[in-house]
Amino acid sequence: MKTLGHLYMALAALVLALPIVVVCGAALNGGRSMFFPPRDPTLARFGEFFVSEPVWTTALTNSVIVAIGAATLAVLMAWPVAYMLWSTGSKLSKLLAGLGSLPFAVPPIVFGVGLGFFWGFLGGLGDLWAGVVSHAILLMALPLVTISIGLQSIDRSHLDAAATMGATEAIAFRTVVLPQTVPYTISGFFFVLVLSFNEFIVMFFVSASSYATVTLQIFNSLRNGYTPTMAVAAITFIAVSVLVFSAVARWGDLPRLMGADQSRN
């Protein structure tokens, strides 16, 4: 039974890894076409993606700007909502938490279409900042959840203890609440970062073709067929995801963030 279980997990891992491995291998192709296994292996495509091809370097810069901007903005918006929800549990905070999670819960194409209209009226359509705000709103649900988990893990008697030692609410927030929720805040930040990096449907509607992120660039040139340079982009993105989640696992409690029971190991 045990071996059967391990076998099943291994099989799942294999299927999960299969397309990723194929894409990685295709990046080594020497020619302009995708083959697997690669023909004429070379690393020249990496140079094209990171250095010499302006289409890709611009797209990469845009991706980075949008991802970091959206992650920062999402965390900044999620913090007060999560804090209000935790400290007051008021109707308003519940409403805001619900609304903040809404865009993430509906098919993204619907929210993308809506945001396209929205920025069209407001005048942000095709501007990079509108892309940043759009992603922040779309993915705000993630830091909202991680920060809430972090706040719930704080023992309320810690706040009482701080108060009996002379800490005002502001000082207690700075010295007790904030330090204990830092790992959760960073996790939330990284979740947004990675998902924004990979998102393209919403970006497609709000960019209005005036700029492109990496995923969008690939999406746009879909009909012209794949090139090995695209595969390089894929490898880069996978590497970033693995790195980020490893960091979260290393410095945060990943099983707990994913909702595992605390008491068991």
């Binding site: 397309p19 990723i20 697997f36 990096f197 990979n198 393209f200 695209m230 996978i238």
Partner: peptide
């Protein structure tokens, strides 16, 4: 991982 990349992998 973006839908784009996944489709790319399975497409190949």
């Amino acid at each position: 991982l973006s839908e784009v990349f996944i489709v790319m992998g399975w497409d190949i």
